[in-house]
């Protein structure tokens, strides 16, 4: 059926003048320090009731742990869910019925400076919960993960197709979950997190150290 239909389409297309595939568009250069651009972009996306900064800058893993513990103060570990990004270690191996948590903690595979976006790769359905079924989503990431714009992200992804290295699911998250369906009034949250906070480290994050240091949050 599918093949036959594609044959039919080939016949239609055969009578059309073929249009050429265009060159990539040139995106304007992102000026300034990418971390600053990212911070400004994400802060601009805060919900109306958000009084906390969207980006907390730290120097290294040790400081990231300290900040994380502070951000999670007064929240019991049972109300915290992690999406583990450390290789070879999966904290969501056990199938658990999904439920809402107060805080979800994830890493990121990239940050997009121009748009204030956080890019996650989700190896499993359960991994998605920490950025979805939570009130606050805390992302721990580092400077070396910053990309200037969406062009860098999607051109990079295209290159990974050839090596068969595409992530099962990638989600590019830009700010909190929101809706403006009722009279175009912005409401936060809709179905997902009310807040996305990024702990942005100058040095790359050592996840093994971070997990040990933040053991009280597990």
């Amino acid at each position: 059926m599918l093949d036959r239909k594609i044959e039919d389409i080939a016949r239609i297309v055969g009578s059309m003048t073929p249009a050429a595939y265009p060159d990539p568009a040139a995106f304007p250069a992102v000026n300034g320090d990418l971390a600053d651009v990212f911070e400004a972009a994400l802060n601009a996306l805060c919900g109306p009731d958000d009084d906390q900064p969207a980006v907390v800058r730290v120097t290294d893993t040790t400081e990231a742990i300290k900040t994380l513990v502070e951000l999670c103060a007064d929240v019991p570990p049972t109300e915290i869910i992690w999406q583990d990004t450390s290789p070879g270690e999966s904290r969501d191996a056990e199938p658990v019925l999904p439920r809402d948590h107060a805080i979800g903690i994830t890493g990121a595979v990239a940050l997009i400076a121009a748009t204030g976006s956080v890019v996650l790769e989700l190896p499993s359905a359960l991994a998605g919960r920490a950025s979805l079924l939570v009130d606050r989503h805390i992302v721990i990431a580092s400077r070396d993960q910053l990309l200037p714009d969406l062009a860098a992200l999607y051109h990079g992804l295209s290159q990974r197709v050839e090596t068969g290295d595409c992530p099962p699911i990638q989600v590019c998250i830009t700010g909190c979950s929101r809706t403006a369906d009722i009279e175009k009034m912005l409401v936060v949250p809709a179905h997902g997190p009310r807040q996305v906070q990024v702990i942005l480290s100058d040095e790359p994050i050592d996840w093994a150290v971070l997990h040990r240091g933040a053991a009280s949050l597990h």
């Binding site: 992530p167 099962p168 699911i169 990638q170 989600v171 590019c172 830009t174």
Partner: peptide
């Protein structure tokens, strides 16, 4: 919607469902 980027852009490549 007059947004620079939408809240969520999901790329479903190898689905788990």
């Amino acid at each position: 919607t007059g947004q620079q980027q939408s809240g969520y852009v999901s790329l479903i490549h190898r689905p788990y469902a």
